[in-house]
């Protein structure tokens, strides 16, 4: 906290004066981006619906999701048939970039306070790159969230919750989390 109570410490205090500080939001968004990239990597290997969209991406396709300042960020690259999480610094010029204008906007989405379509509509999140590829990645992210999140959380992140039976959902979710754990024990490319 700033030593002078009349001066707002802009780094530590969100403008609203409520909720976690920007520093905490940055740490949380960074963790979520790390988790999202690993979950999407696992889901793209397990779920046939996501795999179909990933298969249609160009060879060596790469994308990044980041806050405008550059951090936090996630990066993924298509390697053969797989979509792999990589270090953001490993991508010189990703084919596609999803960019949040501010860490507070990334936090809103990553904490399920604002859905991704609403973030686009509110000009908090922008896409730079090929839109057809962007739509495939967004569909994959939506599907992944529908599978791995409890329904009451997923409905806050998605425009519509897809018609997935509970047995199918639990089965796929178990396989995705299992694959995530296996991937973590493998040699991490990042």
């Amino acid at each position: 906290m700033s030593p002078n109570p009349n001066i707002i410490d802009t780094e530590l205090s969100p403008a609203a004066g409520r909720g976690p500080s920007y520093a905490i939001q940055r740490v949380y968004a960074g963790f979520m981006m790390w988790l999202i990239s690993r979950l999407l990597q696992a889901a793209s290997a397990v779920d046939p619906v996501i795999k179909k969209d990933i298969d249609r991406l160009p060879e060596d396709f790469s994308f990044s999701m980041r806050v405008r300042s550059g951090s936090p960020a996630l990066a993924m690259r298509k390697m053969g048939d797989d979509l792999r999480a990589v270090q953001p610094s490993a991508l010189q010029r990703p084919a596609l970039v999803f960019e949040f204008k501010h860490v507070a906007h990334a936090f809103l989405v990553m904490s399920f306070q604002e859905s991704t379509p609403r973030a686009f509509a509110n000009d908090r999140l922008a896409v730079d790159g090929d839109f057809a590829c962007a739509m495939k990645i967004m569909r994959s992210l939506n599907r992944m969230q529908a599978l791995v999140l409890p329904r009451f959380i997923a409905v806050r992140a998605l425009k519509a919750y897809p018609p997935i039976g509970i047995v199918e959902k639990l089965g796929l979710a178990a396989r995705i989390y299992g694959r995530l754990v296996i991937d973590l024990f493998k040699r991490d490319p990042s």
Binding site: P117, F120, F131, A134, M135, M138, R139, K159, A160
Partner: peptide, 15 residues
């Protein structure tokens, strides 16, 4: 049509 970016802004999700 599902690969067109405008789908994102449609008020109803489109399958």
């Amino acid at each position: 049509s599902l690969d067109d970016g405008t789908v994102v802004m449609n008020p109803v999700d489109v399958t």
